[in-house]
Nucleic acid binder design. Structure first.
Lengths: 212, 212
DNA sequence: ACACATACATACCGGTTGGTATGTAATCGT
DNA sequence: ACGATTACATACCAACCGGTATGTATGTGT
């Protein structure tokens, strides 16, 4: 290991790049700005990353994916009550995330909307993370189905895709409205949708009511 | 009226700007590119629009809003069977729109994700259009409720917000996956959600099944 | 017919961008 | 101990950006 601790430097760049990209988008993210936050220079950046594109891809893989992993994927995978876990994550996500994340949007969604049509490598990288998300929800629904919590006639693949889509849509719209309240209301409806996939217990369950 | 038909010139610029912005995003949209498509020059553009920002705002108001108006808002408003109309629009939207619109994303959503956190005027303009969308769906649900088609316990405001959010989410995710099929599947689930808001007729209705 | 406004075209500008070439100090392998 | 490699810093560059100043041809109002 070198005294200058290259891995630590790399992480500093990655983190700063993540913040800048989250705020400005990838294309508008300025390498100069990213470096200014770290006190490093271009020499350091272009030593660790060959291009700006490579830096962006690394941010997706090593920052964004990891955060989603910790925040969403792992809780779903680790729980042996997958439906309960899914409903819990949906219900509490807005408290487990910094407030400005609603104002700035989901980092993954931001990049998807900006880059998917422009850069194939970005598209693939982002699609990979989204695929994990989708398959994690899918697996939770599937296991819930095996446990009898989810109705047998539910197409869990299509439902999982929709859950993820609506999820991102909720963040996106809330971001546009700059309204954490809208996010909360919207996620509550997603909660209702998932409940609608469940087998009716004894009480006739959900409707769609809450505050305005 | 002048021989050079300024309104026509303005429209040409607006349309070209819409296309460039749709493909590249607003910030990455190059004024030079926009003008190249039209055969005009910067003199023309900066005669009709004081800044690039003003051009972008005009694109939202005069192109994007109008397209949504025609494609979504009007059908919902004009129908006296609002729930049926809503379900129909959701079911057929993918056929009423050019194929590359899925690949390039919803122009409104693209701009929301890119600009809402960066520029307050953009945020307001976009929020305005989104608000019309939301209120249009809201009104359709409300009227459906009065007609007894929508259950009385449904919070139509929250449901409308969710419908719009999920709608945009579906396009966004389909764009990332570059998959019109995913869009179709996703919208079908949104269809299921809306059906779930309806009063049970005699048949016990929807589930959630379709192709993989 | 003549002053003036409109509707553009052309040429130019300062600032910023991602990227590179070069320099250098520290560390590692042997 | 010493060459090679790593890990940066510094200086620089061509390309492109949005925007402006100026020029000009074509109208319109009177």
């Amino acid at each position: 290991m070198q005294t200058k601790q290259p891995d630590l430097t790399r992480d500093k760049i990655l983190h700063s790049a993540f913040c800048e990209i989250h705020r400005q988008g990838f294309q508008a993210a300025s390498i100069t700005n990213i470096l200014q936050d770290t006190g490093l220079t271009k020499g350091a950046l272009y030593h660790h990353f060959p291009t700006k594109q490579a830096l962006g891809l690394a941010v997706i893989d090593e920052v964004i994916k990891q955060r989603l992993e910790q925040l969403i994927f792992r809780p779903l995978r680790d729980s042996d009550k997958p439906v309960e876990a899914l409903l819990d994550v949906i219900a509490t996500i807005n408290k487990k995330v910094p407030a400005d994340f609603v104002m700035l949007g989901c980092p993954l969604n931001n990049l998807m909307q900006e880059m998917s049509a422009l850069d194939q490598l970005f598209q693939q990288q982002l699609s990979g993370v989204l695929g994990i998300w989708q398959r994690t929800v899918e697996d939770a629904l599937k296991r819930g189905q095996q446990q009898g919590e989810i109705r047998a006639d539910v197409d869990y693949k299509a439902a999982a895709l929709f859950v993820v889509s609506a999820w991102e849509g909720c963040i996106g719209v809330a971001k546009n409205m700059q309204s954490p309240k809208a996010f909360e209301s919207c996620m509550k409806q997603l909660h209702v949708y998932v409940e609608g996939l469940m087998s009716p217990p004894r009480k006739k369950a959900q409707g769609g009511r809450q505050s305005r």
